[in-house]
Design a protein around this nucleic acid. Sequence first.
DNA 1: AGCACGCCGACT
DNA 2: GTCGGCGTGCTC
Length: 739
Amino acid sequence: MIYADIIIDISSDKLDRSFQYRVPERLEKTIKAGMVAAIPFGNAGRVCKGYVIGLSDKPKIAPEKIKEISEICSGEETTESRLIALAAWMRENYGSTMIQALRTVLPIQEKIKAKEKKYICLDISEEAGTQLLKELEQTRFKARTRLLRELLEKKRLDYTHAAKELGTTSAVVKKFQEQGIIRIEYDEIMRTSLNTGDISGERRMPLTDEQEAAVKQIQREWKKPSPKPVLIEGVTGSGKTQVYIKLIEQTLSQGKEAIVLIPEIALTYQTVRRFYARFGDKVSVINSRQSQGERYDQFKRAKKGEVQVMIGPRSALFTPFASLGLIIIDEEHEPSYKSESTPRYHARETAIRRAVLEHANVVMGSATPSVEAYSKAMNGEYSLVRLTTRYGSRPLPRVSIVDLREELKAGNRSVLSRELRQKMKGRFEKKEQVMLFLNRRGYAGFVSCRSCGHVMKCPHCDVSLSEHNNERLLCHYCGYETGKPRICPVCGSPYIGGFKAGTQQIEKVVREDFPEVRTLRMDFDTTRTKGSYEKILAAFAAHEADILIGTQMIVKGHDFPDVTLMGIVAADLSLNAEDYRCAERTFQLLCQAVGRGGRGEKPGEAVIQTYHPDHYSIQAAAVQDYQAFYEEEMSYRMLLDYPPAAHMLAVLGSGPEDEKLVQAMYYLKLYIERIYRENDLHIIGPAYASVGKVKDIYRQVIYLKHKDHKTLVHIKDQLEKYIEINSGFRKIYIQFDFS
DNA sequence: AGCACGCCGACT
DNA sequence: GTCGGCGTGCTC
């Protein structure tokens, strides 16, 4: 006798588990994990659809309780079943429940019902409603009162939303509907796709010899019986997009589709317009500002075959194309390709897995590949393609490194070194533009007491508050806001002030030093509203300002031909993070920043200000020498057994009660020591995570390091079981994070 | 999600 | 006593 594990519905949290069904004899041969089956469910025996996620020969519960599968609705070779197989792989490799994995892979399913989105509407006049509310308030119909009050205020309520927020059960709604007080409305609005704007300015450029050679090399790889993923290492301005477009053209001509992943931060109209220009309405774009419904529409169009190219961030990877031929990952090194929620998948690895399942190809590209990807290219797992010539053979900017310690010794306490200020002055006189880049990564101006050193912290999170406009203190993790205190809350000293490091302070200094100069600022504060990002860039491009001051976001993907000086104010702020990847991040950011300058006719220049002028990541970035950086960094990772030299698994525990969490994590460590007795496993922790508390939830972490990825997956599997059985983990949420 | 069950106040 | 709303728990 064969039994199938089936997941009924991924849209509800309450059904977040699998149910076992008997497989009738006639289906024993055909049934496979990933198929969609019709099954009776619930007391009323209503038939619904479910996903087969696994098969076994043992019943988990009393066999007489198990019902039989009615029929199979899908074959094994459908897009959906391949995506379910991908979800199963993600579940296994990243550690999550099957439901969580399915929800990541099939955002469609959630909306397949909501394609006819249900709304509750008042079906009687407002006066009658108000009257009825008054009557109801006198009675004990609490749920109805809540619902009616909300309805009078909002007129139209989202059905699922009402259920969640107001605790409105179906019984309440049904009763109201019978009485004719409300009606249920459905709507199916096809949200319009992104407007393509003016693309007439784009002309097709022939490939350079080097690009042509790269395309040929990739095509040779694809002709092999089992093609490897391709990594393009191409310096900034070498025209990787041209190569991508050529490869997509070829894929489409074979009747297949393509997915282009672009990191969230670079996903602007500027970057996708070249794809629009070439492929027109064959292209669809997803971005993270879109609602679930909008994304669903995009996926539906892809499934119907109305578009052939999908461009988007990480989640676009799951576009349900019928015959996927190519996945492109641009800026492969970007950290946003790693998911921050369970399953914590990496788009690069998952794309390669999907490509295997779909018989598609993967091409990734970066000027500064991640150490992980590059090491795989070195050991032959990926095929490496190099683009070394900058467009129009423009020289790289001249870079000078300024030692800030020397500045301090010379009595200059400003954030601008003498050299940088001197060079800025020269540019302003010549009417050329300047960009100042602050690599701050959460080191925004925190507020501390100069007498006792007390730092203002968020009461709900383990982070310092940062000062924003008009003396407000803001928590970047939970949004907590408070006024800046006049005196120190600990010692009462009036000398309490901001640590000057934010973009606002730099803007202030620039204005003081150069009163004539028009400044523009781009950071967390100024880009919060929709469209402001593009507005700022457009204003700068139109010479409405002479200097642009900003964080990470200013170094991504924009060409300003009149920018001839790039100032990197504090290069090593990102070096101080305790993360093993901080040198890599610093190198990548600096390379991008330096590469920004000198895109036009005039030669560019860059100034890097740092306290660590001798650090290899800064030295290598100044001369844009990836190879030198890679070798240094790789020997460091080998020495300390960090990925990719070894594999690492972070076991993250979180919960509202500190002591319970500490205890549970300690037991977890003991359990790991008990089940794995070889001495080749490094266990670090448990310890509080780098941010030990977020929104009043405490967080701890155990790190496991081992040469073999499979061993870690095995330990994860055992831990999952242990946690499920053990009641001590009831209020503790455990997540796994592989790297 | 959707259904049955059982508790509890209100009313014949 | 019975009726009916409303929260709770279960569905292989």
